[in-house]
Structures are given as structure tokens and as C-alpha cells.
């Protein structure tokens, strides 16, 4: 990456116009535009949907934490390796705090 391009990207990131994401598969820090958000993380499909009440099913399908602060979410590297992975990102500053593959982090050990 050229110095000028690096400086320009840094200025955009610092100005919070965009952010970079480290793809855990490509092992590279890439422009956010290459990625697509894919919703809140750790929402497991119910094991036995038939046993759920309407309220529980609505909660699974429609209700989200919509957390203000550090938020675990799924992203996909659409214009890269096309793999899904986890990102912990601040919904206040857009800062990417941590990235992970699905195997490493789950709803139990996520902080």
C-alpha cells in the first residue's frame, strides 16, 4: 500500500467517516466497504421451534438488544473471502475492538 493511500485511509478512519476491519481469514486490514454487516451475534436458532411460545418465537425473530456500546455482531467479507465472522465493535465510536472466527468465541466466553 502506498504511503499516500495509507495516509488517506488513516485520515478517513480518524475522522470516523469509515473504519477498517481485520478479516480473521484473510489476515488483512481492509476497508469496511468490502464487508457487509449481518446482524447481532450469538442468536442461536431454537433447538425445538415447535415447543416455543409465540412470545419466545417473536423474541428470536424480531427482538434485538440494540446495545449502545460494545456490540458483538456478524460481518461477511463480501468482496473478499466471502466468509462470515464475528466482530466486537463499538456502536458509539464505530471502533472495531476484536474480530474472531465463529469457532473461537461464542455466547458463553464472549466478553
Amino acid at each position: 500500500m502506498s504511503m499516500a493511500l495509507q495516509a488517506w485511509l488513516t485520515s478517513l478512519v480518524k475522522g470516523n467517516i469509515m473504519f477498517l476491519i481485520d478479516c480473521p481469514y484473510c489476515k488483512e486490514s481492509r476497508d469496511q466497504n468490502e464487508f457487509s454487516p449481518a446482524g447481532e451475534a450469538f442468536i442461536a436458532r431454537p433447538q425445538n421451534p415447535e415447543a416455543l411460545s409465540d412470545e419466545e418465537w417473536a423474541d428470536y425473530v424480531f427482538y434485538r438488544t440494540n446495545h449502545k456500546g460494545d456490540h458483538w455482531e456478524q460481518w461477511v467479507h463480501t468482496a473478499g473471502c466471502r466468509k462470515y465472522f464475528l466482530v466486537k465493535r463499538s456502536t458509539i465510536s464505530h471502533e472495531v475492538i476484536q474480530v474472531s472466527t465463529f469457532g473461537e468465541i461464542n455466547s458463553e466466553n464472549a466478553s
Binding site: N16, I17, M18, P37, H67, K68, H71, R89, T91, I92
Partner: peptide
């Protein structure tokens, strides 16, 4: 809108 969740009052350049 941007597809990601945010409370930051700014969005992406794209």
C-alpha cells in the same frame, strides 16, 4: 441507512 447498528450520528462514505 447503513446496515450496521450505530448510535454515532454519522455513517459511511459509501
Amino acid at each position: 441507512i447503513d446496515g450496521y447498528n450505530s448510535y454515532a450520528q454519522r455513517g459511511s462514505a459509501k
